[in-house]
Amino acid sequence: MTARVQTWHERVSWKSIALYACSFVVACYLLAPFLWLVLTSFMTEAEARSVPPHWIPERPTASNYAAFVNPSPELRMVGSRAIEETPRALLNSAVVSLSTALVNLFIATFAAYSFARLNFRGGRLLLMAYLASRMVPGIAIIIPFYILMRKLQLLDTYLALILSYSTFTLPFTIWMLKDYFRTIPRDLEDAARVDRCGWFGMMWRVFLPISAPGLIAAAVFAFMFSWNEFLFALFLTSTIQSKTIPIVVANFATDLDVQFTFMAAAGVLAVIPPLALALVFQRLIVQGLAAGSVKG
């Protein structure tokens, strides 16, 4: 038989054209606000407020970013000192988010291993209780949390944020890791024990390295949640000692004025760390989630 060269309309079906078109529309819908944010961050405030609005900056400027590094005395006061506070707020967010991710990994690893491997009385009930706690909206428990933190003299500290974020993220992390751990064959643990490992040795040298995709996915989710969280940070922080980036960015919209370009630049800066994390660990996150949900 002779091979016949396919014409373009034989290779490209209407179904795939429709699929690509739909994907393009969804991508535009999702990415347009982010693109607008990035483009606005390179505009002057006058251009950003121009009517009719336009997308592409006519005279792109990096001055909005430069202001964060070395703000002039008058810019320092913009947005309740938001420009001045942005770098420190980024650091605070990083410390709080990383710590929450680590606390999550440490506690959830032990908890999830117990749920995945040990049959103990009330285990299922406990898991359901964790899930139920995840259903309670933050606004419902913010007052008790505030009072608790005040009594513990933890207001306006990293620890207050780390503790409260861990409360919200741990149930999800435990559920996710429990499902992931169940996909790891028991024989591997047994083999490690036969190969002269105690329980901790087995965990450290065999179980946790194999679980890396699941652990990284869980840690990234805890990090993202903490990085984006607004409500608890608003209540529990009051000075730049512990204020996180969402609070400081919100300050650009004061009662008197809204600084669109600075807000956009701060927004871009705030997006970079989680975006970088997601890009770096993209493969592992998908692997971790898929193993937990499909095989678990």
Partner: peptide, 13 residues
């Protein structure tokens, strides 16, 4: 003791 498992249980990493 040393043991060979049915699934081989080789450490994948």
């Amino acid at each position: 003791i040393a043991m060979v498992f049915q699934s081989y249980a080789l450490y994948p990493h």
